[in-house]
Simulated assay, not measured.
Amino acid sequence: MIAFAALATCTATPPQASTPARSASVPVEPPAITPAPARSTTAQVESMRPDFWFSTPAIQGGLVTARAPSGARAVLFNGAELPLTAEGFFLIGFDRDAENSASLVALFSDGQRKEHYLPVAPGNWKIEHVAANPTGGAKTTEEFQARRGPELARINAARATRVASDGWRQNFIRPVAGRISGLFGAQRIYNGTPGSYHSGMDIAAAAGTPFVAPADGVVTLAAAEDVFTLEGHLLMIDHGMGLNSAFLHCSELLVREGDVVKQGQVIGKVGATGRASGPHLHWGMKWNSARIDPRLVISAVSPSGNGP
Score class of each variant (00 low, 15 high):
G268F: 04
V260K: 14
F247K: 01
G268V: 01
L235A: 04
D259I: 13
G274Q: 04
D259W: 12
G274H: 05
K262S: 14
V260H: 12
H249Q: 10
G240A: 11
G232V: 01
G268N: 06
K262I: 09
I267Q: 03
V266K: 10
I237V: 15
R275G: 03
G268A: 09
G242W: 04
G232D: 05
G264F: 11
G240F: 01
P279Q: 12
E252A: 14
H233M: 12
H280E: 14
A272R: 10
I267R: 00
V261P: 01
V260C: 09
M236F: 07
G242H: 05
K262F: 11
G232S: 10
H280V: 11
M241L: 12
E257Y: 00
V255M: 12
V260D: 02
V266Q: 09
E252D: 15
S277T: 15
H280P: 09
A246Q: 02
I267T: 03
L235T: 02
I267A: 05
C250Y: 06
G240C: 06
V270S: 03
Q263C: 09
K262H: 14
R256C: 06
R275T: 07
G264T: 10
A276R: 02
G271R: 01
D238K: 04
A272P: 07
E257T: 11
M236Q: 13
H239I: 00
G271Y: 03
N244D: 13
L248V: 09
N244I: 00
L234I: 05
L235H: 04
E252H: 13
L254D: 11
E252T: 12
G240Y: 03
E257C: 05
R275A: 05
D259F: 11
E257M: 06
H233Q: 15
L235S: 02
E257P: 04
L254V: 08
L243S: 01
V260F: 09
A246N: 02
V255L: 12
R275K: 15
V270C: 09
V261G: 02
K269W: 04
A276C: 11
H233V: 08
P279A: 13
L235F: 05
H280W: 14
S277Q: 14
V255E: 07
H239E: 01
G240T: 06
A276S: 15
L243E: 02
G264W: 07
L248Q: 04
L254E: 09
D238H: 08
A246F: 00
I267V: 15
G242I: 01
T273S: 15
N244S: 15
R256A: 15
L243F: 08
V266M: 08
S277W: 13
L243M: 12
V270G: 05
A272D: 14
T273K: 00
L254I: 10
G274L: 02
C250E: 06
D259Y: 12
Q265T: 13
G242R: 02
L243Q: 01
F247E: 02
L234K: 01
L234T: 00
A246E: 04
G278H: 07
S277F: 13
S251A: 14
R256T: 14
